[in-house]
Design a protein around this nucleic acid. Sequence first.
DNA 1: AGCACGCCGACT
DNA 2: GTCGGCGTGCTC
Length: 723
Amino acid sequence: MQIVRVALPVPIPQLFDYTSQDASEEDIGRCVRVPFGRGEKSGVIVALPAVSDVDPARLKPVRHIQREVSPLPADWLELVAFVARYYHEPLGEVIALALPPGLRRADAVSDRESDPLLDLGPAGHAALAAGRRVSRALTLLQQLQAAGVIRRSIARELPDGAALADAMRRGWVVPVRGASPATAAAGQPELTDEQRAAVDAVSTEPAGFVPWLLHGVTGSGKTEVYLRLAARALAAGQQVLMLVPEIALTPQLESRVAGRFPAACVVSLHSGLAEGARSRGFVQALEGRADLVLGTRLSVFAAMPRLGLILVDEEHDASYKQQEGVRYSARDVAVWRARQRGVPIVLGSATPSLESWHHVRAERYRGLRLNARALASTLPKVRRIDTRRLRLDEGLSPALQSAIGERLARGEQSLVFLNRRGYAPVLSCPSCGWVSRCPHCSANLVVHLADRRLRCHHCGCDCEVPHACPVCGNQDIQPFGRGTQRIEARLAELFPEARVLRVDRDSARTRSQWESMLAQIANGEADILVGTQMMAKGHDFPKLTLVGVIGADASLHAADFRAPERLFQQLMQVGGRAGRAHLPGEVLVQTEYPDHPLYRCLVRHDFDAFAESALSERRAAGFPPFTYQAMLRADAPVLDDAMQFLAHARRLAQDMAPAGVRVFDAVPMRLTRLARRERGQLLIEADERALLQTFIGRWIEVLRAQRTSRELRWQLDIDPLEV
DNA sequence: AGCACGCCGACT
DNA sequence: GTCGGCGTGCTC
């Protein structure tokens, strides 16, 4: 009789012991189903202890050990244990997050959909040589001959992929084995000198953990560097892990990667995947059959026995930080993992996070630069428009209007960038002062004139636009401020001949809407685009030569110390949309603070100067990365309950905190009320990460032991992004 | 987290 | 008399 120790997804930092007739060392890392309470739960065997702390008579036998799938290896268990420790969450909860649900439930694994390598068989070569009558199968054969060895899934995607089954039935195309996954498709682009230097720097480094920061301006070809590095790792028989910030970016990248490495097994992992596909992908990675794993933050937990390289694209992106449950940073976990496995990691961005940039300056990371745009186009010219003495027309300056007019006359596209959805951020009554407040949040309801609704952008509350002031009956209530819809409407009036297209979360709600808009833009079916940050990311618009930025000043004085960093990143990214290919681009930034250092740096495209000044401000103010933070947040239906809990937690912290750990005041959050709950927070800070960690560990243990009203929720956020 | 047990208020 | 509120405690 063997004792097995199981990590289960319950919110208490405990492991549970069970008995098993036949468990052996081989079963450590395997998924199990066990009786729990009066029900059943599933978890992972993490140890086979000789004795249990609980009375042997109380141990129940495990119900089922999943032995169809390879066990999770020791290094994976170490990885999740690290995440549990660092973010102060129970191991079982971290495991539940890291494993695909179907796998953890120890379900039977679906038949592995194999994706065999295909090549032309002798019959296929003969058919080509015979000069037969042209058919789809024959055209496909020509495409396959050009491609070389190829995965079936990729072959299906070829222009005549529909004829694949036919070609295989005739024996023209046959499965082959043993082609190197690094086999590259024909037609790789030439590298620029900078790209070559970056690839060489990483490749000539001796094997082992090296963190690299690839700082490459928009359009400098970072992806090509990733692909070359991946090719080297694949050729060495290693697996590559590549992280991207968003689900929306995976399909494009996946097809590009799969197209480049037709013989490689490329697996993508993200939360949008069906359960079966996610389990299958994870198992392929775990069993070493996947060569390249591509995915969003949760794919940092893919088990990979032959891991040789980690790539993190857009490493500054906030979506690498999970904002609920286990609040982990996939980028930080990836760096830990690279160190653990002794492999290089490349963090890439056009606008690196100040944290990573600081690591380069402190020589903890190695820097790689791509300063030139690969496609022979230069960086856009950035100009500030001082709006202090201008008469604006619905927020649009004369200079911006005439610049748009010029683009229109030349048949080029313009983008007006404004990070505010809706028609106007608030509706208000000039006679009695009523404003459209959300009943559930401390926020205003936004006017959506497109469908005549008032909406809360925080809780989704939605009602009709009233015809008169609900308090005083005044008929003349007015929308104040401007959002994308209002700008869109005004542009349509100013340029009646132009096709104006608004691109925001409202107009591009579904994937297909978003894709059809991208196609419209690419086909030149729009002249003026009005867009939010959706427009800033990851797409090329060859005819776009003007970006006008309005309403950016608000972020200059925001309370969050990271707001300027985000603004600068956003403006650099959206500015990068202007002028690709052979048309020079221009960026016009409307501002009342044209001399603000942030805009001065933006005009010079000088990220380094911006980062330098932002970092020195942070150093002076004692903010990260010069200090380490943890945030305790509490929420309850009534603010007072949340604040009382935080005040209690604060007293506790003050009693326990060693020198060097600073406990701040408990304060209501900026958006205090959200979805009928009121929220407060308590910041803890220290100069040493280890000091903060040990203290938080002891503090949280005490805090967890307290009983609180059931209406009160609280969570801990290590390295919070928003303070 | 679930889910039991258990002890007090207002309903058929 | 019971249905049901949620405080308390446990899960190997």
